[in-house]
Design a protein around this nucleic acid. Structure first.
Lengths: 343, 343
DNA sequence: CTGAAAGCGCTTACAG
DNA sequence: CTGAAAGCGCTTACAG
């Protein structure tokens, strides 16, 4: 922090002295109050500039109990999807005068607990949370009862009454599966995620619904759980192709998983889209650049982020209504899904 | 923030009353002081739990002028490289009890100025900055004179005396260029970045040095500047291939640029590695999964992040020595670079 | 081991 | 328009 020549921190009092006014006046100037004469304001602003004064928000919020800090807790910052989501959220807060405070939990509930505590200690105005896998209602009790505005993004938590912003996972997955069925596939796998994540339940649910509507059985060996990583995608392909009656296509929990599945297919000398069809979910930037370009369910990441930010802003401004926003999804048909080899 | 049944915020005083001690004692317990009897400590801890007390760090740091907040300003969070860097940094701070506060400037100096101001207002203990393109000495004056611990990461700023952590850009680029020369290439381009970024000067400098050492001319039309994006990589390929004597290989400023160049080659029906060679820089996770796998200069991202965090921690603990850390680089030979078509 | 008191840098009525 | 005063929730000597 800036210190005056005498070594102490530069405060409003120093500014007041330098400008020859009282500190109330300085405070008014800082808050852009119209009560202050232009002449006086300039003197104050000048003093601020020459002394290198920095407003102390901690002190201010101690007095008036308001902060411009918003917490944003991400379960996997290494997944480009969440980086994109974060950008959408940041953009809104920036223009609204709030500063988002991003932290990464890397799917660890322990790390998440630490991060949440830290953020609450810093008296954030609200929290946008992409819950780590394994988060339970009890983990968020303190936040809910404390009355902190909370928006759950991408995943909900059973029993937690908070606003949420998620893509329409069910519809997206059903549509993607229908598309694979239309192409002629009959044995379709679902890869990635765990049944204890709402996003997986919903996406896998859409997949099942489409199969059932087509009169097809849902084969348990075709649903492969695992972390939402490339490794899971690759391992699943190995596992699926060693089945007696292997699938001819797979819907992946997300694009990162699909990227891994695509790697494994290539390693086996199989042509994605021709020998085996792959559909992803999210439509991260990488998807269209992958080879072959990935057929995937686009979730409009940016607007999801903006919705989350706006929901948060509304709550901060005192609107206590809960709202579950379901984002539009659209199937992006590219080249990773085609007709099955031999029908 | 949690409120007591009567509606006011739960403070140390409430805890003191509930536990039947003074608030000094509560403060001591909170700080883990050994002065407090185990019995008393338990009573206090219990009261904290039942009342849902949350420590107010703003008030604490107002009193003792220390924070556990560390700012981390990233110039492009959408580039996976920086997400990886952030993870390395976070890891160290987490164990040291500091909480990093990530913000993204998206290469905008204006946005950067806003973010820096906000962070200073929140009285951060230190700042790790990946400067946005166009950052000048003057932009960091206030921070330097204010005595805020500052570590520059990935890019330095001319005239700014601060510790820095960067990969050995010059050596990495020279080595990569030498490798292309060894493969038989004689016309080699350099794609991406701007000459006003230290990282570009250094990488492009290594490229020039290698060419000169080989007695080859440095052709200005072979050096293409631009934002460090996929689009730049793609556009550069179009531009280079329309040259009278087009290059047979290119060193890209970073992997993201190389990804874009690879897209453009594919679109033209050219086989990367056979028809045209590409080398990247950074070795982001994506690089080895790209098709063909990208030959690139690995920079040991994680340890770069850790070095930055440790340098920061040292400064926070009062060590004022400046230190410029130059990270090791190693050429990862994969398949995107091969012998030129016809030599 | 524990309590009373001062003070960190602000904002907010309240007077003038 | 401006000033004096109280108080936000903590920590830190200082007594006891």
């Amino acid at each position: 922090m800036p210190r005056s020549p005498t070594g102490h921190r530069v405060t409003m009092i120093d500014i007041a002295e330098a400008a020859g006014v009282s500190k109330s006046t300085v405070s008014l100037v800082l808050q852009g109050s119209p009560l202050v004469k232009a002449d006086t304001r300039d003197k104050v602003l000048n003093a601020i500039d020459t002394l290198g004064y920095v407003y102390n928000r901690g002190a201010a919020s101690l007095r008036n109990a308001r902060t411009n800090l918003v917490g944003m807790v991400i379960n996997d910052l290494a997944n480009p999807f969440f980086a994109e989501l974060a950008v959408g959220i940041e953009r809104v807060f920036q223009t609204a005068g709030y500063i988002p405070f991003i932290a990464n939990t890397a799917e660890s509930p322990t790390r998440q607990a630490e991060v949440l505590r830290s953020m609450r200690e810093h008296d954030i105005a609200g929290l946008i949370l992409c819950p780590a896998r394994g988060t339970r209602q009890g983990d968020l009790d303190a936040i809910i009862t404390g009355g902190l505005p909370l928006v759950l993004a991408m995943r909900r938590v059973a029993g937690v009454k908070a606003s949420s912003v998620t893509p329409d996972n069910f519809r997206g997955a059903r549509r993607a599966t229908e598309y694979l069925l239309e192409l002629g596939h009959r044995r379709i796998a679902f890869i990635g995620g765990y049944a204890d994540m709402t996003a997986q339940t919903e996406r896998c649910g859409g997949y099942r619904a489409a199969l059932e509507a087509a009169g097809l059985p849902v084969d348990g060996t075709m649903v492969i759980e695992g972390p939402t990583t490339r490794e899971t995608g690759a391992a699943a392909i190995e596992q699926l192709l060693s089945l007696g009656a292997p699938p001819t296509a797979a819907l992946c929990f997300n694009d990162v998983v699909a990227l891994g599945a695509n790697d494994a297919l290539r390693r086996r000398g199989l042509a994605t889209g021709a020998d085996f069809s792959l559909v992803g979910f999210d439509d991260i930037r990488e998807a269209r650049h992958m080879w072959p370009p990935l057929t995937t369910v686009a979730v409009d990441t940016l607007s999801l982020g903006e919705k989350a930010a706006h929901a948060m802003l509304r709550m901060i401004h005192g609107d206590s209504r809960r709202d579950d926003y379901l984002g539009d999804v659209t199937l992006m048909m590219r080249d990773s899904a085609g007709h099955p080899k031999a029908v």
